[in-house]
Amino acid sequence: MKLGAFSISLNVKDIQASKTFYENLGFQVFGGDISQNWLILKNGSCTIGLFQGMFDKNMLTFNPGWDENTNKLDSFTDIRDLQRELKTKFVEIQTEADEETSGPAFFIVVDPDGNPILFDQHV
C-alpha cells in the first residue's frame, strides 16, 4: 500500500504566530496562501501544514501520487483503491471518496484514539 507523501496538518489559532514559531525551528514556507489562512512549511523532508479555521483537530495527512516535494509519482496507489482496501480490513471511513470518479479526491479515517487521518490525492 503506497500512501504517498506524509505531513502533519495543524489546526492553528494564529497562523502568523505559528508561521514565525516554525520558521524559528528552521522551517521555510513551501506553499500555501497566508491570506487564505493556510501554509505548507518544510524543513528537510519534514512537512507541516498550518491551517487556521479549516478543521477542528490536528491530523495526519497522506498524499497519494506525490513525493515529499509535491512531485507527481510515476506509480502510486489511487485513493479509491486505498479506500477499498481499507474497507476490506474493516477500517471505518468517516468521509468517503466517490469511487465512481478519477483524479483528485480525499477520504478521512479516524484512529482508535480519535486522531483523524486525511488521505488527499491531488493528481
Rank of each mutant, 00 (worst) to 15 (best):
M1G: 13
K2D: 15
K2A: 12
A5K: 06
A5N: 08
A5P: 07
S7H: 10
S7R: 08
I8Y: 12
I8C: 11
I8E: 11
S9Q: 12
L10Y: 04
N11G: 03
N11Y: 03
V12P: 03
K13M: 11
D14I: 06
D14T: 07
I15E: 04
A17L: 12
A17N: 13
A17W: 01
T20S: 14
F21G: 03
Y22S: 06
E23K: 12
L25W: 09
L25Q: 14
L25C: 15
F27Q: 06
F27A: 05
V29S: 04
V29T: 15
G31F: 00
G31K: 06
G32K: 10
G32A: 11
G32T: 12
D33A: 12
I34R: 03
I34M: 08
N37M: 02
N37D: 14
N37S: 14
L39C: 05
L39D: 01
I40M: 14
L41F: 02
K42S: 11
N43R: 13
N43I: 00
G44L: 09
G44S: 07
G44I: 07
S45P: 10
C46S: 15
C46I: 13
T47Q: 14
T47W: 00
T47N: 09
I48Q: 06
I48N: 04
I48A: 05
G49N: 11
G49F: 11
G49W: 02
L50Q: 00
F51Q: 08
F51A: 08
Q52H: 01
G53V: 10
M54E: 12
M54F: 11
F55D: 08
D56V: 02
D56K: 09
D56M: 02
L60W: 06
T61Q: 11
T61Y: 08
F62P: 02
G65W: 04
G65M: 03
G65P: 04
W66A: 03
W66G: 00
W66V: 01
W66F: 15
D67W: 04
D67G: 06
N69Q: 11
N69M: 02
N71C: 05
N71Q: 14
K72F: 07
L73M: 13
D74Y: 00
D74N: 14
F76S: 10
F76L: 06
T77F: 02
T77P: 05
R80L: 08
D81F: 04
D81V: 14
L82A: 05
L82I: 15
L82G: 07
Q83N: 08
Q83C: 05
R84S: 14
L86V: 00
L86T: 02
K89S: 10
K89D: 05
K89M: 13
K89Y: 09
F90K: 15
V91G: 02
V91P: 03
V91T: 14
E92D: 13
E92A: 13
E92M: 07
I93T: 11
I93V: 15
Q94T: 13
Q94H: 10
E96Q: 13
E96A: 15
E96H: 04
A97H: 10
A97S: 15
D98Y: 09
E99Y: 03
E99G: 13
E100W: 03
T101V: 12
G103E: 08
P104K: 13
P104E: 14
F106Q: 15
F106C: 12
F107Y: 10
I108S: 01
V109H: 01
V109L: 02
V110D: 02
V110P: 00
P112C: 08
D113I: 01
D113V: 04
N115Y: 10
N115W: 02
P116C: 04
I117T: 09
L118V: 00
F119K: 01
H122I: 10
